[in-house]
Amino acid sequence: MLLNQFLILGALLFCMGVYGVLTRKNAVMVLLSIELILNSVNINLLAFDAMNGNSDGNVFALFIIAVAAAEVGVGLAMVLLIFRNRKNISLDDLSEMKG
């Protein structure tokens, strides 16, 4: 197997995730796209690990999974809070930073 087949797959998933983050309006959907990005990173880490024959990347992949779990927890809590206050979770309506 070539290293690149995994890396290109990772890159493709990453760019899909970026596209999703940018186009989705619903906050839950944005979080889903972020998971896509995180997964693509994990694929990269493990591919490099397999190439170099060591295990450091596995450790980082596990860390990323843990961080992703934490991120989803906090992210969904925030979405719930926004939903409770505004009765919708459309990110486009959150434009308090308009200059």
Partner: peptide, 18 residues
């Protein structure tokens, strides 16, 4: 209502990145 109208910007950005 799931998507906003940013696809015009997002698609080129994602493609360029890829």
């Amino acid at each position: 209502e799931l998507n906003n109208k940013n696809a015009v910007v997002a698609a080129p950005v994602a493609l360029l990145l890829f």
